[in-house]
Design a protein around this nucleic acid. Structure first.
Lengths: 163, 163
DNA sequence: TAACAATTGTTATAAGATAACATTTACTAT
DNA sequence: ATAGTAAATGTTATCTTATAACAATTGTTA
């Protein structure tokens, strides 16, 4: 398998599959996946690393499309609301959701060097946090778990915790 | 105990104590807690809720101090580097660290309604994430765990998960 | 097809963060 | 003491991220 210089670790999930699933989910929910929204989702899935709102805007303009920042942010809000994408708060970027059918709080491994993101969904983490919250009578609305570090490729041959 | 309208749940830790400890830690490390840095830390600790960089800047100017955004951000960088404060990425705000002596990744319960923050440090959460990362040959550099929700006071008498 | 709601476009601006360089302050070695 | 140096702060400008307010368009429904 040959890799392009820009994507040393391509996403496991297929953009086409993600878009198909998005169509189905939106139809089922009576949500309108308009051309703009679909295109924004496509852009996000087509890029090997998460994109900022303004990077998405630039790509939309490459399509010849009009519109300013609000256009993008509204599309992103829709996609976030449908659970089709996640926002990585630590980097102000957006990434496609790998399990859009089950509502969940994303857990992410973010590579500092190449920007590549791996999405986890470890129920134990979620439960632990929920337990901590409950013990403090705190009602959980959303969880944000982002681990910053270096992915295997960017670490090269290094052994973990040895250097 | 009487509460001011602005702080329905005051921080458990005492600002004075936090500043004293900061002095000690910096001295021990040979780090210079200058007047500006000390004042920024004091401002952060004196507020019942986390503050944005620009809110801190406004308060510095109330002191009669000169300086622009870089002045604040540099002080914040120093304090972050010393582990004396945390940055909440989901809100772009800064809050005092309750365990500045032990290096750790903060875990936070953030109230959506009043902005109040509770800091956890559950080693199990950290270990779980580290295990997930290690299983993927991912080297962990930092962890960000932020739980957004509603604190007991803002929930009033509601029972958890019943409304 | 008129009326209404939802979506998108447009303009302006707010909010968060940093780059580049000048000035001041603190430390070091004579 | 004081010149030289490094660290910290001040200053100006600019960049990135995000939203407010309103106009135009598109889609839906009666």
């Amino acid at each position: 398998m040959t890799l392009s210089p820009d994507s040393c670790h391509p996403l496991s999930s297929d953009p086409r599959q993600a878009l198909e699933q998005a169509e189905i989910l939106c139809q089922r929910r009576g949500a309108r996946l308009t051309e703009l929204r679909r295109r924004v989702l496509e852009i996000i899935w087509s890029n090997p690393t998460p994109l900022s709102a303004y990077a998405i805007l630039d790509l939309l303009r490459d399509d010849g499309r009009q519109g300013g920042p609000p256009t993008v942010y509204r599309a992103l809000d829709f996609l976030l609301g449908q659970g089709l994408i996640h926002r990585l708060a630590s980097l102000n970027v957006f990434t496609g959701c790998r399990q859009p059918d089950s509502r969940h709080n994303g857990q992410f491994l973010i590579c500092r060097d190449c920007g590549q993101v791996d999405e986890l969904s470890n129920p134990a983490v979620e439960e632990l946090l929920r337990a901590e919250a409950t013990a403090r009578q705190f009602e959980v609305l959303a969880q944000m778990v982002e681990v910053l570090g270096r992915c295997p490729d960017c670490r090269g041959g290094e052994t973990p915790y040895a250097g």
